[in-house]
Design a protein around this nucleic acid. Structure first.
Length: 804
RNA sequence: GCGGAUAUGGUGGAAUGGCAGACACCGGGGACUUAAAAUCCCCUGCCCACAAGGCGUGCGGGUUCGAGUCCCGCUAUCCGCACCA
């Protein structure tokens, strides 16, 4: 039989069409089957299209999904579009096209690119966050949050990006840089809608114990939530009825307090402005602080600044001693109570401040040299009244809390670094926030039956210079009647942040066309939770926390029946440019998958994406490496020229076949795709060495390879008449017994150094090995004139003679 | 500063405490060819003319019959957080 050369350009479109025409990858309605819900982060359809980094995650999950189908699972492997967002809106403004049109164009381009790679997505369940039928339910969930007191409005300093003209969450403005345009962020006072994610801080921490996340991902979430345990303590303010509340994690050092510090924004300063002697200087200092960028405040200025607040001093509740109060920007208004008790002997920041301002330093824990730096270690308590003599931090904290609580000076408490989620943006291209401001009733929810609250059509998407959303300028949108009292009212004109639509999309996949609910209870009960979610490390602290928060909330109000949305989370490493740098348009190192596929085919592209290195590590792209993978597929194809008509594995390959099945099966599960592929390459090399391959061997090989290279294997399956429906053919089984070899080669070591190799019966015992191998002439040479004092025999691996 | 990761040939990378460098890329040689491409075969960590041997997994110690792997102490790079009281 003559075989044509391997031609992916012919094979790949052929199978992609067959899969689409036969709806091959649509999830089945049969809810009695075991299910598998595999999820990848739905893409933001940017105008740039895909680069070779994007498909890495998809390919990995596609391999798992395809393997699961062959293992008899009902697989849900969906795709959708996270399509709201600034880049689209900015493009729309610049080119004067409606963002919906831009979005549609980009989505079509993305879909086409993905289809060319041959992912087994269920395209019948596509979701699009900008579709009113979708964002109807985003708004619905928001209203549920509102109804349950999880939404509140506050006037605070917010992170504002002057370039994007938009308020950013803390998460979106890390390091004082805008996450979208990377410009400097400034702090502005503004009315902001918040979601009370902090109420779920403990649940978010607790939930991590019931899911399978890798250590580094779980740890990042733990750090982000930033729970600390400590105490709130009230210091009386001398000459007033006021208590100044502070938060500390070290109440055991209360006897070492020599001063207190308030954040520049602390409200008590204004309240007592009249009794503060140096209010002018304080005002000047506050202005100075406000002018500093976040960058200066956190990165550069480690030198402590501040000044004494004259006329205000605190009273240490335990000692009754008076301590001065300072203002300084090393204390943040946004954490704890915005004021601290300073213990310079045992906190380095307080120590630096005390040195600079000549404040007393009282040591209360023995150890270190507090002349040189603060001592933060453990030790015996001194100068601390009833705490003296305690040597264990835990015990002394317990003891002092007892005292504080008994006397009403304060209480034990916890703090989180995580802040509530700033939830509004002054932009057009987002979900309208379904709230109405009524002069009589206050903030009123848009009635559920009026959802979706559609984005009005406008011509001008430009945000106003007044910091308001473009929607604020559309009177027909803004003006409405209050659903409660019927009075003339105004709509909220801000929209939701991009994270909203992605916080629940996996739920919609379960039942994407439902018009009565975001998904039916039955569909949710069957499909949820997501069994395996793969995505990028960059979404670990934001998207992953936000979506867990929404899901936990929906669980608490009885809308979903599992407390955690994702059972297992994994993350891929970045694919870097050939220069080892992150791929970006500006660096000019972007590799386009279309070009690669055109050159070597989608299967070789997929194969290389998975073969290039450890899945969770960042790796530079190498087009030569990719070509090597094409070479491997050519070799697999040409195996057809050495085919022997036999329904069993040949004796020579028996053990290798079973070993390969085992290795590939287990490595896929562990996302060790590179070694799985290496094992298949080894197998193919052996087939070439033997010079022939049986039908059974070929069948197994292409089944193992199918999840990675689906087109070529489907074609070979058909050519060789292996039957219909390769994608649901039974995944190969391995047999441990078949791997056992009668003879094996082991290493012979003398004093731990390898001195040769010997082939022995595989079942040789230690006693036999000691006797027979020591007598072997190759071994004798190294043992000459020495006594063997000990023999270590590791069956199947080595024998080690310890000789003197 | 805190948290996490990484460090192995010219390159990407393999290796339940048990033969370091699997599998590839690059490079070299050979076969086939009028020639080239493709393909097939061989070589390819370093030192050494060869053999024998020695040296080799960022650095310094340790545990062990045996360490890339475990322990202690460093260094470098990357990622995340960061004056979090």
């Amino acid at each position: 039989m003559e075989f044509k050369a391997y031609d992916p350009k012919q094979i790949e479109p052929k199978w992609q069409k067959i899969w689409a025409d036969t709806h091959a990858f649509e999830a089945l309605d049969d809810h009695t089957m075991p299910k598998f819900f595999g999820l990848i982060e739905f893409p933001y359809p940017s105008g740039n299209g895909l680069h070779v980094g994007h498909p890495r995650s998809n390919t990995a999950m596609d391999i798992i999904a395809r393997k699961r189908r062959m293992q008899g699972y009902n697989v849900l492997f969906p795709i959708g579009w996270d399509a709201f967002g600034l880049p689209t809106e900015n493009y729309a403004i610049k080119n004067n096209v409606h963002p919906a049109i831009v979005t549609k164009k980009n989505v079509d381009h993305f879909r086409e690119q993905l289809q060319k790679i041959g992912f087994s997505f269920d395209y019948s369940r596509e979701v699009d966050t900008t579709d009113p039928d979708y964002y109807k339910w985003t708004q619905w969930i928001f209203l549920k949050l509102f109804e349950h007191g999880m939404v509140f409005r506050d006037k605070t300093l917010v992170n504002y990006c002057p370039s994007c003209k938009v308020v950013l969450s803390n998460e979106d403005s890390q390091g004082g840089k805008c996450d979208i345009c990377h410009g400097d962020v400034v702090q502005l006072p503004k009315d902001v809608w918040y979601l009370r994610i902090t109420k779920y801080a403990d649940k978010l921490l607790e939930g991590l114990k019931s899911v399978e996340y890798p250590e580094n991902i779980a740890q990042q979430q733990v750090n982000w939530i930033g729970k600390s345990t400590g105490a709130f303590v009230n210091f009386a303010v001398k000459g007033t009825d006021e208590k100044l509340e502070i938060y500390t994690t070290r109440p055991d050092t209360l006897f070492g307090v020599t001063f207190m510090v308030m954040a520049p924004e602390h409200p008590m300063i204004d309240k007592y402005a009249e009794r503060i002697g140096n209010m002018d200087a304080i005002r000047a200092y506050r202005e100075e602080c406000a002018k500093k960028t976040e960058f200066e405040r956190t990165q550069l200025v480690k030198e402590k600044t501040g000044l004494r607040i004259e006329g205000l001093s605190g009273i240490n509740p335990l000692t009754g001693k008076e301590v001065p109060i300072f203002i300084s920007d090393y204390v943040m208004m946004g954490y704890g109570t915005g004021a601290i008790m300073a213990v310079p002997a045992h906190d380095q920041r307080d120590w630096e401040f005390a040195k600079k301002f000549g404040i007393d330093i009282i040591q209360v824990i023995k150890g270190g040299d507090i002349e040189k730096e603060a001592y933060t270690g453990d030790g015996e308590m001194i100068n601390s009244d009833f705490l003296n003599g305690y040597t264990n931090k835990k015990d002394s904290i317990e003891r002092v809390l007892e005292e504080i609580e008994a006397k009403g000076y304060g209480r034990a408490g916890v703090q989180y670094k995580m802040k509530d989620w700033a939830f509004n943006r002054q932009r057009y291209w987002g979900e309208p926030i379904p709230l109405i401001h009524c002069p009589h009733c206050g903030v009123v929810a848009v009635p559920y039956e009026e959802l979706p609250l559609r984005l009005p059509d406008v011509d001008d998407f430009q945000p106003g210079t007044d910091g308001k959303s473009p929607l604020a300028h559309i009177e027909s949108y803004v003006n409405c009647t209050c659903p409660k009292c019927g009075a003339a009212a105004q709509r909220e004109t801000d929209t939701m942040p991009q994270w909203a639509g992605s916080s629940w999309y996996f739920l919609r996949y379960c039942d994407p066309h439902n018009t009565e609910a975001f998904a039916s209870k039955e569909a949710l009960d069957y499909w949820m939770p997501v069994d395996w979610y793969n995505g990028g490390m960059e979404h670990v602290t934001r998207h992953l926390l936000y979506s867990r928060f929404w899901h936990q909330f929906l669980y608490d109000i009885g809308e979903v029946s599992c407390p955690e949305p994702y059972m297992k989370r994994t993350a891929q490493g970045l694919i870097l440019g050939t220069d080892g740098e992150k791929m970006s348009k500006s660096r000019g190192n972007v590799v386009n998958p279309d070009d690669i596929i055109d050159d070597i085919g989608a299967d070789a592209f997929r194969l290389y994406e998975m073969f290039m290195g450890a899945f969770d590590q960042a790796i530079p792209w190498s087009t030569n490496g990719a070509k090597g993978c094409r070479k491997f597929l050519d070799r697999v194809w040409r195996l057809q020229e050495m085919l022997v008509d036999s329904d069993s594995y040949s004796e020579k390959l028996m053990a290798t076949m079973h070993e390969t099945i085992k290795k590939v099966s287990l490595d896929y599960e562990a996302m060790k795709f590179n070694t799985a592929i290496a094992a298949m390459m080894t197998l193919v090399n052996e087939m070439y060495a033997i010079g022939s391959v049986t039908k059974a061997e070929l069948k197994t090989l292409i089944q193992l390879l199918n999840p990675v290279a689906p087109h070529i294997t489907e074609e070979m399956w058909e050519l060789n008449g292996f039957g219909s429906g390769m994608m649901r053919s039974e995944w190969p089984q391995w047999d441990e017994a078949a791997m056992v070899k009668s003879e094996i080669e082991i290493a012979v070591q003398v004093c731990g150094k390898v001195r040769g190799h010997i082939t022995i019966p595989a079942d040789m015992t230690k006693e036999q090995a000691e006797k027979e191998l020591a007598a072997h002439e190759g071994v004798q040479r190294y043992l000459a004139g020495k006594n063997v004092v000990k023999t270590i025999y590791v069956p199947g691996r080595l024998v080690n003679f310890i000789a003197k």
